[in-house]
Amino acid sequence: MTWLLVIIGAAVGAPLRYLTDQRVRARYATTFPGGTFLVNVVGSLALGLLTGAALAGAAGSRWQALLGTGLCGALTTYSTFSCETLRLTETHRRRRAAANVAATLLAGLAAAFAGATLGRALWG
């Protein structure tokens, strides 16, 4: 049953990541991988919210499997982030690569902290 919830969540999260990346690429003509950055930050915010809710006792293990492991886990990605960073360094855009790493880490952590604090405030 939990497997099924993870699968359902991931089957929504992965196409959402793909569509977001396509939209961002279409809208902003830049070498900065904004789509991956966006999904990672939004996914971290959502998982922070869920973690705060779970700590407050408002989200059970099924919600965590569906939304946390499935949706947020598949919405965010590490492999694409590292690959795009590598591609930036390979094409001699080292500053952009460093900016990508710093921005993703900082914004992702900040989003998770904000989400968790908000989740605790909402459901705590």
């Binding site: 992965a14 971290s44 886990g73 919405l75 965010t76 590490y78 998770a112």
Partner: peptide, 10 residues
């Protein structure tokens, strides 16, 4: 992309 994850870290 679905195997790896960023949000869990954060």
């Amino acid at each position: 992309g679905g195997f790896t994850t960023f949000s869990t870290y954060a």
